[in-house]
Design a binder for these strands. Structure first.
Length: 325
DNA sequence: AATATGCACAACCGCCTTTTG
DNA sequence: ACAAAAGGCGGTTGTGCATAT
């Protein structure tokens, strides 16, 4: 539709009134922002439903919440995404799919909406241009993955499916849900069933390395991912099998759990402000008191996949010539 | 100069999940 | 245990500005 035609259908300067309820829609005015900001800063948001009336706003609570979380919140970082942030987004998207809120939880001070917009308007297009399917993160026709890498992907995928199947058969063994063993080829949009559960995080970190392996070989974007390769150069040794570490006591992994490598190196998936000592963790993954057979079996299964990763780790260090570009 | 197109991002909508009574 | 309310999430649309035709 042409822009001019569009405009005829549009609102009256943001003063749309929804279904006769007297609720304002459209862009927020500075005055509204001021009211919302000052109310929340003074009283907290409490119930969003009742907030508009208390704050003197003719908006629905949902609109207020969105405005606050996506724009007014003081801890929001705005402006251009750094290369590091882009890289994180791409990596997490490969693992999680369009789970923007989860991805956002690993990018400090960025909102899910902002990340989603950035993905749709920048990264997705760039990947498409480069012949990479933004949904599967795999090269489209004419772009090759190394066959060895495909082999590892297949092996990993097989291990993942096996683990998933076995764990689903034994639901009594884990406290919440079976872990999310997502891999880049699996992450399709599912509105319903598979919310990423807290226990899923360990596999994210394992897969992160796997992911690095994959990407190092078909180079999504030299600029964006070069740092991944160069970072790998810093540690030439084969990565040790990780010891799975914390999950939050509220069940969330949002702020980024850690993986300890031989009790020496600690890798963080995201910010760790909220976990400062062991007391903050509700349980240690692998803790037999909390999840006995589950984690044992899980880690065994991961171990198989991990060996494949380590076997191929040299490829991260010295990636072959990129088939792309 | 007028119009079309592209782009970035704010905001809304509908659905799903979680919480509350 | 159940229903309703509230909150949260992801997809999509709306809007304003810049640039191209």
């Amino acid at each position: 539709m042409v822009r001019s035609e569009k405009k005829k259908k549009q609102n009256n300067n943001g003063n749309i009134v929804g279904l006769g309820v007297g609720v304002k829609k459209g862009p927020w005015t500075p005055e509204e922002d001021r009211k919302l900001l000052s109310y929340v800063q003074q009283f907290g948001h409490g119930s969003w439903r009742s907030l508009p009336a208390k704050a003197g706003l003719k908006r629905c609570g949902k609109s207020c919440r969105l405005r606050w979380t996506n724009y007014l919140r003081p801890d929001i970082k705005r402006g251009k995404f750094s290369m590091e942030e882009e890289r994180t987004i791409i990596q997490l998207h490969a693992l999680l799919g369009n789970r923007w809120s989860t991805i956002a939880s690993h990018l400090p001070r960025r909102t899910d909406n902002e990340i989603k917009n950035h993905w749709n308007s920048h990264i997705k297009k760039r990947m498409t241009k480069m012949g990479i399917d933004p949904m599967t993160h795999k090269p489209k026709n004419g772009t090759q993955l190394l066959s060895s890498n495909l082999n590892h992907m297949a092996q990993w995928e097989a291990a993942r499916l096996e683990a998933e199947a076995r764990l689903v058969q034994k639901p009594k063994n884990h406290p919440t849900q079976p872990p999310c063993l997502v891999s880049p080829s699996i992450h399709v949009h599912h509105k319903t069933p598979t919310k990423v559960s807290p226990p899923s995080l360990p596999c994210l970190d394992v897969l992160k390395v796997w992911q690095g392996n994959l990407w190092a070989n078909y180079s999504i974007n030299n600029e964006t991912l070069q740092s991944l390769i160069s970072t790998s150069n810093a540690s030439v040794a084969t990565p040790p099998m990780p010891v799975l570490s914390h999950v939050y006591n509220n069940g969330s992994y949002d702020q980024g759990p850690t993986i300890k490598h031989n009790d020496e190196i600690e890798i963080k998936m995201g910010p760790l402000e909220e976990i400062t000592h062991a007391d903050d963790a509700d349980f240690i993954i692998g803790d037999p008191l909390r999840s006995p057979d589950f984690w044992e079996e899980f880690v065994d299964l991961l171990d198989g996949g991990w060996k494949n990763i380590t076997n191929n780790y040299a490829m991260i260090i010295s990636p072959p010539a990129s088939p792309v570009c």
